[in-house]
Write a protein that binds this DNA or RNA. Structure first.
Length: 233
DNA sequence: GCGACAG
DNA sequence: ATCTTGTCGC
């Protein structure tokens, strides 16, 4: 197994990361509708950590958007490239995720990330970074509301409310299962919020979280486990 | 000023 | 994210 290194020039401190983030944000494309629901491929990405051994495993799982069948999958294991700092999560996950995406043999299509896009202190979260860096349309589907405010959406699947920050709508609290805690959807790159939510509903025929992130989550945990076994025990 | 804060 | 048993339910 190969453990990928941290890329040359990758930010090592908060100040540099903030500057890089601001630069990437200048390349963000908003307002485009993005691919239609059920069209082409849709790819879930996620990572798992072992802080003890300073390892991070990433997984990318490509699904046929129409059938939700797995079309391709890839993993990568790397060194943790940045400490966890709220607002700078992307700098911790991006290098290894890009390595996994690079190993895919199928067109990723739309990227579905475990975290935020526009719903971010500086309106540029993990999904935005991955979208801009790959050029792919991307959305963020998070499990928690972070620091944002929202009204409880209606109890039925498909109902939603605005995620608000500084009086501005940055995403939606979307109910994917009746009576279950909503997920928090925001735009990453080249996809409208309306369509991001439609994709999310299409990807949640059975569970609260999208099939993409469920599959990527399971795969990156498995990859991390295998990496630890391979390392020693 | 201090704490909380996606994963 | 991760530390973690049993348990309820499909």
């Amino acid at each position: 197994m190969t453990i990928i290194g941290i890329p040359q020039g990758w930010p090592a401190d908060e100040r540099t990361a903030l500057a890089v983030q601001e630069d990437l944000r200048g390349r963000l494309e908003l307002g485009e509708p993005g691919p239609g629901v059920g069209e082409g491929n849709v790819t879930g990405v996620d990572v798992a950590y072992d802080d003890e051994r300073d390892l991070v495993a990433a997984a990318a799982v490509v699904l046929d958007a129409r059938t939700l069948d797995v079309v391709a999958e890839a993993t990568a294991v790397g060194r943790v490239s940045f400490p966890y700092v709220p607002g700078l999560l992307a700098f911790r996950e991006v290098p290894t995720v890009l390595a996994a995406l690079g190993r895919l043999t199928a067109d990723p299509g739309l990227l579905v990330c475990d975290g935020y896009g526009l719903a971010h202190p500086r309106r540029f979260g993990l999904a935005s970074h991955l979208g801009v860096l790959t050029g792919l349309p991307s959305i963020g589907v998070a499990k928690n509301p972070f620091t944002f405010g929202y009204e409880q959406p209606g109890e039925q699947r498909g109902e939603f409310s605005a995620l608000v920050a500084e009086g501005e709508t940055v995403g939606r609290a979307l109910r994917t299962r009746a009576g279950v805690k909503p997920v928090f959807v925001s735009v990453g790159h080249r996809v409208s919020l309306e369509r991001a939510c439609a994709h999310t509903l299409h990807l949640t025929p059975r569970y609260r979280l999208p099939e993409t992130t469920r599959r990527a989550d399971a795969l990156c945990r498995r990859a991390l486990g295998e990496a630890l076994t391979a390392q020693s025990g």
